[in-house]
């Protein structure tokens, strides 16, 4: 039996989806293990979070109530302090910007190994954490083990498929008001602002329409938004499109962006850098629209349309737009 601790990140609406993914994955896959969770949250969120987690199937949930804004050292202090007194075999944090900021600080404080941005996790017979992550720009997958305890990893958002949290087991909530050593907090947080939900929640959409360099211009990239509006999909972009200033980095798919797992992913004018292909690995179905039959994305698509991306986008919009309008009228 392994003793697993999952750190749960919160925003103004409670536990974030990336954290729920880890919980649901651990509870449903590591049935012989004890799965606990630690949350750092403001007083006002306590009831909401309890409500969200009461059917989670977790064993113990430690609620650290603290009203300060996020800072690396604050979170590192609370979590490493807790782990030092409550040893766990495995410690998992979502590889969100916050998780990736604080995790190495905790690992360094505790002198333990840390595997970043894993896309698969498992336990072997000796309860060793098998943490698998893409490396070399996503070209190689490596399964990494750690000689130190807790075995520590950050998990890429969207990489573990989530099942709904519905478990009858009674959860044990432990409320803690942590004592903070403010002399060890080295910076002052002047402002902390979460970005809007819209931009961070697109990764869980059922249909994602994505655009890349092949669209040729920012004006043409707008067609992606238009098509999304018409069919109720979410827009996304390749690194190139983001670097060219056509789309916000919040909707970038790939290694440093996000992994997605929609039912349908359509890529317009994307040649398919390896990071991008790794990011769409969990999509049920991938369609690419590209003039180049030899583009890397072709081999990673279920269907490849060999045609000009802008032409296809425009015709598709022309076909669908009247239908949608008719539906609205009726």
């Amino acid at each position: 039996m392994a003793n697993i601790l999952v750190f749960l990140e919160t925003d103004e609406n409670g536990i974030i989806k990336a954290s729920e993914e880890i919980v649901s994955y651990c509870v449903s896959n590591f049935k012989n293990s004890q799965v606990n969770a630690a949350v750092i949250l403001s007083t006002g969120l306590t009831q909401t979070v309890k409500g969200q987690l009461c059917n989670s199937g977790l064993d113990n949930i430690y609620l650290f109530i603290n009203d300060d804004a996020y800072s690396t050292e604050l979170y590192a202090q609370i979590l490493s302090g807790f782990l030092q007194e409550n040893m766990h075999d495995v410690f998992l944090i979502s590889a969100t910007p916050l998780g990736r900021d604080v995790a190495p600080r905790i690992a360094s404080k505790m002198n333990i190994g840390l595997t970043a941005d894993c896309t698969e996790i498992g336990l072997d017979e000796q309860n060793k954490l098998l943490a698998t992550r893409p490396t070399y720009g996503g070209k190689l997958m490596a399964t990494i083990l750690s000689k130190t305890v807790p075995q520590f990893a950050t998990i890429r958002p969207g990489a573990l498929k989530q099942t709904p949290l519905q478990n009858e087991k009674t959860v044990n909530f432990v409320e803690i008001h942590p004592e903070i050593d403010h002399s060890k907090i080295l910076c002052e947080v002047i402002s902390f602002q979460r970005k809007n939900k819209e931009s961070s929640d697109w990764t869980s959409a059922d249909i994602i329409i994505s655009g890349g360099r092949g669209l040729g211009s920012k004006e043409n990239f707008e067609l992606i938004y238009k098509l999304c509006d018409l069919i109720g999909a979410k827009p996304a972009a390749s690194r190139c499109a983001v670097e060219l200033g056509w789309a916000d980095s919040a909707i970038q798919v790939g290694q440093t962006g996000s992994s997605v797992s929609p039912k349908l992913y359509i890529a317009f004018g994307i040649s398919g850098a390896m990071q991008h292909l790794v990011g769409i690995e969990n999509a049920d179905r991938v369609i690419s629209v590209n003039t180049d039959k030899n583009a890397p994305i072709t081999a990673s698509s279920d269907i490849s349309v060999i045609a000009d991306a802008v032409t296809v986008l425009k015709s598709l919009i022309n076909e669908i737009e009247p239908e949608t309008e008719n539906a609205r009228k009726n």
């Binding site: 490596a142 990494i144 750690s146 000689k147 690995e281 039959k293 698509s301 279920d302 490849s304 598709l316």
Partner: peptide, 26 residues
């Protein structure tokens, strides 16, 4: 503390069907 136990090439194979016409209906 960390070491690589296994390394392998990424990505699963997909059906990879190529179409050049009638794509709008597809």
């Amino acid at each position: 503390p960390t070491y690589v136990k296994r390394a392998y090439r990424a990505l699963k194979d997909r059906k990879n069907k190529i179409i050049t016409e009638d794509y709008i209906s597809v």
